[in-house]
Design a protein around this nucleic acid. Structure first.
Lengths: 129, 129
DNA sequence: CTGAATCCCTTCCGATACTG
DNA sequence: CAGTATCGGAAGGGATTCAG
C-alpha cells in the first residue's frame, strides 16, 4: 500500500474523486437539486424524483445527512412527518451542480449528435473514404 | 410510457440525469480533468490516473470518444502511439467540472468532519442529552 | 505500447413485504 | 406517512491472458 500526495486539488485524482464519490451516486445530485428549491417531505421527494425506489431514496438521504449536506427534521405528529432541507454546506454544493446541469442543458444535444454519428460510422464505414 | 416535460433544465430530473450519467462514471471526470491540461498518451493516462485498470480506461475512453468529448489520434508508428485530447465540446465540460472539484477542495473537510461526527453520535448517543 | 477478451467476484439497486 | 428488511437479478469493475 502506498500513500500518494499532491498539492493541487484538481491536478491529481484525490480531490476529484472526493467530489465525484459524493455526487456520482446517481441519486445524490438529484436530491440536492430537488432540495435546492425548498424543504421537502419524504413523499414529496419520492414523487418528484419518481424514478427512485424507497430504498435508494432513504439510503441516499441517510448518506447525505451523514455527510452534513442535508438536514432531517422529524415532526412528532401523527401521521409521521419528516422534512428534508439543505444545510448551509449542502447549499454550497448547489452552485457547482447547477453549473454541471447548465452544461448538460446546453450541450447534451451535441453529445447525442456525436453518439448518433459514432453509430452511423460504425454502420457505414465507407463514409470515411 | 409517459412523457414528462419541464421548462427549466435543472428544475426536474431529466436534465440533471443527462449530466450525471455522463460524469458519474467514476472515471469519466478523472479522464476529462487529466486531459484538460494537455494531450496525453494511453500509457500516460494509465499512469496518471493510476487507480484505473486497462479495461476501464479503454472502456471509458471509447465512451468519451463516442460522445464527442475527446479525440483519439493514432500515430502509425511502431511501437504504436495513440494520443488523446479534448475536443472543443470536451473543453466546455472542463469548467463545470473544475467548479465541482473546487467545491470538493474547499468543503471536503467539512464533509469528513460531518461524517466523523455522525459516527461519533452513533457511538455516543448520550451526547445529545 | 495499445488494446481486446474472458473470468469472476462484488456491489448496486429494484421489487416486495412488513412495521410504527 | 415514513421508513426497515430481505431477496435476487443486473451491472460494475478488477485481474489475467492474448494480440497487433
Amino acid at each position: 500500500m502506498m500513500i500518494q500526495q499532491q498539492s493541487c486539488a484538481f491536478d491529481q485524482t484525490s480531490g476529484v474523486r472526493k467530489a465525484l464519490d459524493l455526487v456520482a451516486d446517481k441519486w445524490t445530485a438529484l436530491i440536492i437539486m430537488a432540495l435546492a428549491q425548498d424543504t421537502k417531505r419524504y413523499g414529496e421527494l419520492h414523487r418528484k424524483i419518481d424514478g427512485i425506489s424507497q430504498k435508494m431514496l432513504t439510503q441516499t438521504l441517510r448518506q447525505l445527512e451523514g455527510s452534513g449536506l442535508i438536514h432531517r427534521k422529524v415532526h412528532p405528529v401523527v401521521p409521521p412527518m419528516v422534512e428534508y432541507s439543505l444545510t448551509l454546506l449542502g447549499e454550497t454544493l448547489v452552485e457547482p451542480l447547477k453549473a454541471l446541469c447548465s452544461w448538460a442543458a446546453e450541450h447534451f444535444h451535441e453529445v447525442e449528435a456525436a453518439r448518433e454519428q459514432a453509430s452511423t460510422e460504425k454502420t457505414n464505414p465507407n463514409e470515411a473514404a
